[in-house]
């Protein structure tokens, strides 16, 4: 009886104890679903860990939420794609400086039947105008993500307030990119997606890329170290090394080498130090 109780106790303790060592050797990165779900992190993080001996734990959220996680001090690095929001984050003193890392682009995706007749449009504003005037179904992320911010910026540029159509043709779902694509596929609706998630998305059904290539669909990613002055517990050293690696030639090459079906998803564009010019 006593031995039974003792071994039960031991089992409880073993079960409840989770390894906490290697804590200093890890950093937490608040990032976006687009970078995580596209598989980019799965490709580049093992390379960084191998080089630096630092594990990277990625919490994938919308850009707005990821920045909030950084503000609260719950991550060491924030890696997102909404320049205006990122600059606000830096200006408020929560972290920085902001380093541009890479870009890809957004694509306007919709059903093959294309009820709003936007296929092939180079002018994304014109495409959105047609979606609105056809009152064709449109899925909005509605989650303060970088993609959501980009979508709202585009509507403003068109001079339309889609919120008027909310609940009818304009549907805010408040979820990440994948669920938004699932919803568009299920409802035969249009949706703005980042190309990375789109390329790795499996449940396309009859969704197609209908409009792309407009320079307004440019999607820049930036990275920032969370301020150790605000949050003394952050792993500042690990965070700094991660950011330095990302913008270094090695990190940039790692990003460039990630491909799905031969197609490159992200294009590194961190400013490189000027090569020393012979004078």
């Amino acid at each position: 009886m006593v031995t039974l109780r003792r071994s039960l106790l031991a089992a409880i303790l073993a079960l409840a104890a989770f390894p906490t060592s290697a804590q200093e050797r890890a950093i937490t990165v608040a990032s976006t679903t687009s970078t995580e779900q596209s598989g980019l992190f799965g490709h580049i993080l093992p390379l960084f860990t191998e080089a630096a001996g630092i594990r990277v734990r990625v919490v994938a959220l919308g850009t707005g939420q990821a920045l909030d996680v950084g503000r609260r001090g719950d991550a060491d690095v924030v890696f997102v794609h909404d320049r205006a929001a990122e600059e606000r984050f830096v200006a408020e003193g929560f972290g920085g400086p902001r380093h541009p890392v890479m870009y890809n682009d957004f694509v306007l995706v919709g059903p093959a039947a294309d009820p709003a007749r936007i296929a092939g449009a180079r002018d994304v504003a014109e495409a959105l105008r047609r979606v609105a005037s056809a009152r064709a179904g449109f899925i909005s992320r509605g989650d303060r993500s970088g993609t959501h911010a980009a979508e709202l910026r585009l509507w403003r540029e068109v001079g339309l307030d889609p919120v008027q159509g909310r609940g009818q043709w304009y549907r805010e779902i408040g979820q990440s990119m994948g669920p938004a694509l699932n919803a568009a596929a299920a409802q035969g609706a249009y949706v703005l997606a980042d190309r990375g998630t789109w390329l790795s998305f499996r449940n396309r059904q009859d969704l197609r890329v209908l409009a792309e290539g407009d320079e307004r669909l440019f999607n820049q990613y930036g990275v920032m170290v969370v301020s150790a002055a605000r949050h003394p517990h952050v792993n500042a050293e690990g965070a700094r090394r991660f950011v330095e690696w990302l913008v270094s030639p090695v990190g940039q090459a790692a990003i460039a080498s990630y491909r799905i079906n031969g197609e490159q998803l992200f294009f590194p564009n961190a400013p490189q130090p000027e090569p020393a010019r012979p004078s």
Binding site: T33, Q37, Q175, S176, M177, G178, P179, L181, N182, A185, S200, F201, R202, N203, R204
Partner: peptide
């Protein structure tokens, strides 16, 4: 949840 949102039903 992750695989669902990646569309890998």
């Amino acid at each position: 949840a992750l695989e669902t949102s990646k569309g890998d039903l």
